[in-house]
Simulated scan of single mutants.
Amino acid sequence: MNAPSPKPSRLRDSHVTLAHGGGGRAMRDLIEEVFTDVFLPPGSEDQARLMTGALQEPGAQLAFTTDSFVVTPLEFPGGDIGKLAVCGTVNDLAVGGAVPLWLSASFIIEEGTEIALLRRIVASMATEAAKAGVRIVTGDTKVVGRGSCDQVFITTAGVGVIAPGCDIRAEHIRPGDVAIVNGVLGDHGATILAARGDLALSTPLQSDCQPLNHLMQAVLAAAPDTRAARDATRGGLASALNEMAEAAGVTVEIEETALPLRAEVKGMCEILGLDPLYLANEGTLVVFVPEDQAEAALTAMRGTEAGRGAVVIGRAGPKGSVPAVMRTAFGGQRIVDMLVGEQLPRIC
């Protein structure tokens, strides 16, 4: 039996023009052939109509988040802006204990952008959504003139459900709780820096961009009293620890020798005077669990693809003069402050 012939394309242009944002046939062809034919949203109305039995359980909560994504370059080793958009929104839901279900995706596209590039970005988003088990159900496109944006900006929103009895948030962290990260730190920020080509750096690094919802559900099942989790994106691990410690009224002490860092990231930071604790991550989180559940959480993490490199990096203690400190390899202490300024612009 012969395979069905592919549907003929009505989209003749190789680059986006202002006509693709004008509301007419050109815009419809762009939306249908580049976006909706890939995402397959339910229906064709101006809104998605969604149902889930999970919300019928007494005590279940709806979780909702939104984020915008800008990165230079748009494609980089280990990912692209589309993968970032899906993983970033999924992870913002996951670290709150939610099971992500649905995403929206809005695109601002600069006139002159290659349609082939858009197709690659959309295909990447569809792949990551399938990995995470979420659906992209609605969205929007706008086309702006040349110079008005950097090819493509994406805004996503995500909806998920938090199961009854699940209440993880930073203010629940207590002295004695153990801090665990699921893998290496700083890969995304270092990869973006190298990919820009400004410094003639050659490195095999790839972004750690990945969805973390399956990992978080495994942790919650193994360690039901998990206190809090945070994905260490902009501002890196240091900023995440400071935010969580301040919310809980504790001081977090981490061990320098326990931090999982690749030699390439360490070397790049030494050359450029950067601190890997402030480099962005897009597939790395830090979770706090009670000490008696730390081993179960660690084992659960290591049983997932995203958590094979999970390690304990420190613990929470009584509130001190600063929110976060690091015990150095030499036995001293160093203050781990919030990021001041911007180490790298346009990283996510």
Results as ranks from 00 to 15, higher is better:
Gly160His: 01
Arg174Glu: 15
Ala163Gly: 02
Leu201Met: 12
Val178Tyr: 13
Ala190Arg: 00
Gly176Lys: 06
Asp177Thr: 05
Pro175Cys: 10
Thr155Trp: 13
Asp150Ala: 09
Val181Met: 02
Ile173Phe: 06
His188Pro: 02
Cys149Thr: 15
Pro164Ile: 08
Ile154Ser: 02
His172Asp: 07
Asp198Asn: 15
Val161Glu: 09
Asp198Pro: 01
Ala200Arg: 09
Val161Tyr: 03
Ile168Gln: 07
Val184Pro: 10
Thr156Gln: 13
Val159Trp: 11
Thr191Tyr: 00
Cys166His: 13
Ala179Ile: 03
Ala179Gln: 05
Val184Phe: 09
Leu205Met: 05
Cys166Tyr: 06
Ser202Gln: 14
Ala163Ser: 15
His172Arg: 13
Asp177Phe: 14
Thr203Arg: 04
His188Gln: 06
Gln206Thr: 13
His172Gly: 02
Gln151Asn: 09
Leu201His: 03
Asp187Ala: 06
Leu193His: 06
Arg196Pro: 14
Asp187Arg: 14
Cys166Arg: 15
Gly183Arg: 12
Ala157His: 09
Val159His: 08
Leu199Val: 10
Val159Ser: 10
Gln206His: 08
Thr156Trp: 13
Ala200Lys: 07
Thr203Val: 09
Val181His: 02
Val181Tyr: 04
Ile180Lys: 08
Asn182Gly: 12
Ile168Arg: 07
Gly183Thr: 12
Gly176Cys: 08
Val159Phe: 15
Ser202Met: 14
Cys149Gln: 08
Gln151Thr: 14
Ile173Tyr: 11
Glu171Val: 10
Pro164Tyr: 13
Glu171Trp: 01
Pro175Met: 02
Val178Ala: 05
Ala195Tyr: 07
Val181Gln: 07
Gly186His: 13
Ala200Asn: 10
Asn182Tyr: 10
Gly186Asn: 05
Ser207Arg: 08
Ala163Tyr: 00
Gln151Trp: 00
Ser202Asp: 11
Ala190Glu: 00
Gly186Glu: 11
Asp167Phe: 04
Phe153Ala: 13
Ala163Val: 01
Ala190Tyr: 00
Ala194Ile: 06
Arg169Met: 09
Arg169Pro: 06
Ile162Glu: 03
Pro204Ser: 01
Gly186Leu: 11
Thr155Asp: 13
Asp187Phe: 11
Glu171Ile: 09
Val152Leu: 11
Ala195Pro: 14
Ala179Ser: 12
Pro164Ser: 06
Leu193Gly: 05
Asn182Asp: 02
Cys166Asp: 11
Ile154Asp: 01
Asp187His: 15
Ser148Val: 14
Ile168Gly: 00
Asp167Asn: 09
Ile154His: 06
Asn182Thr: 15
Val161Arg: 11
Cys166Lys: 11
Val184Gln: 14
Val184Cys: 09
Pro164Trp: 05
Cys166Glu: 10
Val152Ser: 02
Ile154Asn: 01
Leu185Trp: 07
Ala190Phe: 00
Ala179Lys: 03
Gly189Asp: 02
Leu185Pro: 12
Cys166Ile: 12
Gly158His: 15
Arg196Glu: 11
Pro175Tyr: 12
Ala163Asp: 12
Gln206Met: 05
Ile162Leu: 09
